[in-house]
Design a protein around this nucleic acid. Structure first.
Lengths: 282, 282
DNA sequence: GGCAGCGATACCTTCCGGGTATCGACCCTG
DNA sequence: CAGGGTCGATACCCGGAAGGTATCGCTGCC
């Protein structure tokens, strides 16, 4: 199976439309139809159910979609990491670290400071990215290491070390009646009248159904809370970067959040090992 | 980067010889030279140092070797798992479980029994394989799940659950003077005169340098120990399958061995989840 | 110095990936 | 119910790339 075939299949499986997929791939539609047909014939497996109006994935097709994405990421990672290995020899190396915007910012600052003080430290480029993007970046070689947050982020397939664990707090508009309480329970915050919990996008960018405003980043969220249109349950470390018009109350029975440092298995770069060692010693 | 190019490069990088690599790939040598040259040009990276007598990997080349192998395994896994998903629909499904020959055999027996008793259990095909092979089988889709043993096996990149932890014992010929001791320390067993610890093959099938006989499987090892030519430190569960002409003595300070059940991340087959659940409840 | 081994190059052929044109099935609309 | 629009499949052609053979150039060795 060639990566070209996988790219083609993934495009069609995602679009569920040969024409759009072909456009996205920058080729015409007929070669795409042929390529998918060949792939199915060689695998001996039907991947797509086509009526002349709709395209749907078969069971095997959805397996190939997730496995194929993983395989393509692995190939892309091989490419990128090889290029970077060559650059590293000539001096331009540096590590790429990704984390969610607005999360664990003091931890990150401490880590970067501590690492920079190590002998032999290299430059660390920090990428702040959206929800669920880190995993992808780490998997396809665009990033070397990530700060992830269990249980929100999937750490499947990575090596990790735990860095710290923290409770969660609910964020409310300053002056809200509940802010006078010393602590709350999840049952108290799941349906505060007029302050629903927000909906975050799934990995594919769509929002789950349900009540609550759609938010894409912390700034949006804080704005909504300040306006008295939402509340949110977040790790308590967020209080250090909170606007003055917001208040926090601990939520006793919310799941604790563990910040972990994660990297692709088999990474054997010295600067990366050093960064991880620094992180675990914080 | 196409998988064909990766296969070619991995072959050359492993053989360090264009002629042999071409033979292994079933093509002539010139197209292979060209393909590698193109790959290097497209990456903008030198992968191999060629003098007209020798071929050696550059730094970037060895990165591409390990990353490329991983990527090829991921592609192979996509292929195999898609085929199996199609078979599963028509009824022939079943799980493939791999473990080292001779390890955790009662645990495995208990697991298979317990799982078979579950409603909705499917057939489990057990593959016993050589040292370090499990990882490969799990990674390229030939197996669905494995029993691995930390700290010997690498679990990098898999999801795992711990099943049990056990101490290690030294295995000696029955009647050896040390068998009268209630327990020993590693220092006592690393150089018993005439009974060196054996050498196991590395993942690539070669043996590390050093004293001690080369062994490939437990039967060989037991034979050597019975003959008074070696000793070995193994998890204590091996005592239940031991020949009567061998004896065991606990080794207090040997690292404990943890048996874990491991599976590829993102696996979402119901029978697999059921098997894992059964295993963790044993 | 000649020979053997190995990778690179030159050149040819074949095949496959990609393009355009068109068909056939289906849905929507007037 | 007819006709146009949409979408995937098919037919056919072309160019480029992958693979083969022949050969060169370098190098280490007897």
């Amino acid at each position: 199976m060639e990566t070209r075939e996988l790219r083609y299949f993934v495009a069609v499986a995602e679009e569920l439309h040969f024409g759009r997929a072909a456009q996205r791939l920058g080729i015409a539609q007929p070669p795409l139809s042929r390529a998918i047909g060949q792939l199915e014939r060689r695998l001996g497996v039907a991947l797509l159910e086509r009526t002349s109006r709709t395209v749907a994935l078969t069971e095997a097709g959805s397996v190939l979609l997730v496995e194929g994405r993983a395989a393509l990421d692995a190939v892309a990672a091989a490419d990128r990491r090889t290029r970077r290995a060559a650059l590293a020899v000539t001096g331009h190396s540096g590590l790429v670290l990704v984390t969610k915007a607005g999360a664990s910012s003091e931890l990150l600052a401490k880590l970067l400071d501590a690492y920079a003080a190590e002998p032999g430290a290299v430059a660390v480029e920090v990428h702040l990215c959206g929800i669920g993007e880190q995993e992808r970046l780490l998997r396809d070689g665009r990033a070397d290491v990530a700060l992830l947050h269990r249980p929100f982020d999937s750490i499947a397939g990575f090596d990790t070390e735990e860095l710290c664990t923290e409770r969660q707090v609910v964020i409310l508009p300053a002056g809200h009646p509940l802010t006078s309480r010393a602590h709350l329970r999840m049952a108290d915050v799941t349906d505060i009248p007029g302050l629903p919990l927000p909906r975050w996008p799934d990995r594919d960018g769509t929002y789950p159904d349900g009540p609550g405003p759609q938010v894409r980043d912390p700034a949006q969220l804080y704005q909504l809370i300040a306006l008295g249109r939402a509340s949110a349950v977040l790790p308590e470390s967020c209080r250090f970067q909170l606007r003055p018009d917001l208040a926090v109350v601990p939520v006793l029975d919310a799941p604790t959040v563990t910040t972990v440092i994660a990297w692709p298995p088999h990474s054997r770069s010295r600067p990366l090992a050093e960064l991880i060692r620094t992180a675990t010693r914080l």
